[in-house]
Amino acid sequence: MKNGKVLLICLIFSFSAAYSQNTQLTIEGTNGKFYLTHSVVAKENWYSIGRLFNLSPREIAAYNNQNMDKPLEVAQQLHIPLTAANFDQKQKKSAGETLVPLYHVVQDQEWMFRISSIYNDVPVTSLEKWNQIQRDAVKQGMPLIVGFLKVKTDLSPLAMGIPSNPAPGNPVSDVQIKTVKSADPAQAQSTNKPAFSGNVNTGTQSPAKPVNSSVSNAPAVTTVIPVSNTPERVNNYAATHSNGGFFSVDYANNGKSASGLAGTFKSTSGWSDGKYYALMNGIAVGTIIRVSGANGKTIYAKVLGQLPEMKESSGLLIRISNAASAELGLGEGKFPVEVKY
Rank of each mutant, 00 (worst) to 15 (best):
E312G: 11
P171K: 09
S116H: 09
L158S: 00
P81N: 06
S313T: 09
V200N: 11
L102K: 10
G32I: 01
L36T: 06
K275E: 14
P171Q: 06
F265S: 04
F196P: 01
V175M: 13
E312N: 13
D174N: 04
Q109G: 05
F34W: 11
E312A: 15
R233H: 10
S216D: 13
T125H: 11
T23P: 02
A238N: 01
S48V: 03
A239V: 06
V151C: 07
Q107A: 10
V291T: 11
F113S: 15
Y63Q: 05
P210E: 01
E110H: 07
V175A: 06
T230F: 14
V227H: 07
D88K: 10
I60F: 08
P171D: 12
P226W: 04
N254E: 14
E73L: 07
A278R: 02
L82A: 05
M160N: 03
L155S: 11
T191N: 13
L261K: 10
K2W: 13
R114N: 15
F13I: 03
I177P: 08
T83F: 06
I299H: 11
T37I: 00
S267W: 06
N192G: 06
S325F: 10
G286S: 11
P194M: 03
K2M: 13
K90C: 14
L52M: 15
Q66I: 00
L7I: 07
D108H: 05
Q91C: 11
Q187M: 15
S164Q: 10
G32T: 11
F335A: 13
T26S: 09
T204K: 04
A262H: 04
T222A: 14
L72D: 09
N45L: 04
N67G: 02
K275S: 13
G305C: 02
P226Q: 03
E309G: 10
S197H: 04
S197E: 01
S126K: 10
K90E: 14
E28I: 02
N54Y: 00
A284V: 12
S182D: 05
S56L: 13
L279H: 11
M142C: 01
N243D: 13
G270W: 04
P81Q: 04
G32E: 11
H38E: 00
R114C: 13
G270R: 02
D174R: 00
G198M: 04
K193M: 14
G305A: 07
F246H: 13
L127Q: 08
Q205M: 13
N65S: 14
R290W: 09
T230V: 14
K181N: 15
F34M: 09
M142H: 06
E73V: 07
N192S: 11
S248W: 07
K70P: 00
L127K: 09
N281P: 06
N45V: 00
N120Q: 13
N217P: 12
S94I: 01
N199D: 11
F148I: 05
T204M: 05
H104W: 10
Q205Y: 09
Y300F: 14
S164Y: 06
L8D: 12
A278L: 06
V337F: 01
A84R: 12
Q176W: 08
G305M: 00
Q21I: 08
G147Y: 03
P171H: 10
G161Y: 02
V249D: 14
R114D: 14
